[in-house]
Design a protein around this nucleic acid. Sequence first.
DNA 1: CACACTATTGATCAAGTGATCAATAAGAAT
DNA 2: ATTCTTATTGATCACTTGATCAATAGTGTG
Lengths: 209, 209
Amino acid sequence: MSRPERKKAARKSPAERSAEIADAARHVALEQGLAAVTLRSVATRSDVAPALVAHYQPNMDALIASTFATIVSAEIDEVVALLATLPGPRERLGVLLDTLLDGTRDDVTVVWVEAWALGRRNDALAASVRGQMDAWQEVVQGVVEQGAASGEFETDDAAAVAWQLLGMIDGLNAQALVRWGDAGDRGSLIHRAVEGMLGLGRGALSTAR
Amino acid sequence: MSRPERKKAARKSPAERSAEIADAARHVALEQGLAAVTLRSVATRSDVAPALVAHYQPNMDALIASTFATIVSAEIDEVVALLATLPGPRERLGVLLDTLLDGTRDDVTVVWVEAWALGRRNDALAASVRGQMDAWQEVVQGVVEQGAASGEFETDDAAAVAWQLLGMIDGLNAQALVRWGDAGDRGSLIHRAVEGMLGLGRGALSTAR
DNA sequence: CACACTATTGATCAAGTGATCAATAAGAAT
DNA sequence: ATTCTTATTGATCACTTGATCAATAGTGTG
């Protein structure tokens, strides 16, 4: 008896409608993955005809790409804000690792994994992926450089360390996505690993908090 | 002028034809990714009508899953054989890292990444992925345990270390896939990281070779 | 040689995708 | 109140996907 009847969408300003559609795409991506961001799924979610979604976007590849960018950059902003509240590089790095590996962002991890895969057939998305990876790298590199400057971290290539850290984080998260059975604690051992990379004593990151 | 004319496939034994189709699927997956393993692409590749591919497989999900398993388990066997030629755990671990991160297996990495993504909508594939991850983990855990037994590695949870290592490796490879521009050397820093995880001195893994 | 078995195929279906466009109607402007 | 602008839509197309099945044609057997 509950029919998803849709009379006709109220007329709204292009800016507002466009924002609504982008938001619907964001929700679909977080709930069902980037691959589920389709002309019709986004239309249904924003309670609008499929043609209207197409009307407000150059094409679906672009909507998928921008949806990815929106989701990831929001996460970056969130983490950056969190790091800003911490006193020093050691605390920042420790919290960075713990936060990104705490398992509460699996929806974003799914988006990442699907973006890697879909990016091979969607150039706009591939560009977005590279852009957001660079953005993340910049954040992490910043923390590493602070540590190197203060003498707490021992490294001569903060950029490489940042890439390495991101790769490790992404991999562990992607893995946990599949291994959901006994995922357990990603991120307990990683402290040791990172301490090794940066010439820190055992526990330097864990006890920092 | 060059028409891909196909008269009619020679009649072969079911076993042989089935193997041919599986092989065609393997090639398609390695060359264009798992997502390209489609009824028609595999049929074309094995020079056979699409219906025949369907005839020899319960469904495409199953073919994709078995193709994934074939590719990954072949890689595992290959690496296991390589490791068997080395004298001790330290050499084995070093070579393991270097081999998996040398960038010569990007085709397999693509298959992994797409498997993670497609596995969310293909249960058979998801099961295959978990199975192959377990197989990899077993191999790595074996090496770690050897090192722990001989006192070279310092750890009380070889299983967790193995998972951690695999996550790091997968992440770095997946990242390099996108970042192909300046991928450079994945795997130089990882030695330090792993040394940190296992309580080894700096360079213990690198100089082992 | 004739026959039975079965590997192989062409044709066809339903489902889902992105995309286009003329037609409609809501809301603003006069 | 009437006109005009344009946000919104239904209908429809082309394409790709997995899947089914009756019909065809090799191949070995009796």
